[in-house]
Amino acid sequence: MLSCKDFLKELSDYLDESTSPGAKAELDQHLKECPNCWVVADTTKKTIQVYRGTEPRAVPDRLKFRLLAALESRMKARQKNC
């Protein structure tokens, strides 16, 4: 029998589906029997999903202009050396 502590140690690999089939069967079984671990596993999975689903914000214009200006001077210097 797997303890809750053993289950939690494997939780990340379990959610990433990177456990061996034998270990997965044991973890699946623990989930069926332990409501607390089921909640922790379910809400951890949702935690990952909510972060994976976020789109990055636009880069502020000021920063983009600064970056392009710096890049442009590098580009000019490179062309001179060619």
């Binding site: 140690k9 939780l11 959610l15 951890t44 949702k46």
Partner: peptide
Amino acid sequence: VKSRLLRARLQLREKLTRFF
């Protein structure tokens, strides 16, 4: 990486549970 990822995920889960 694996050990830190697990801890990070579990800590974030705790924090988000307060809202969700």
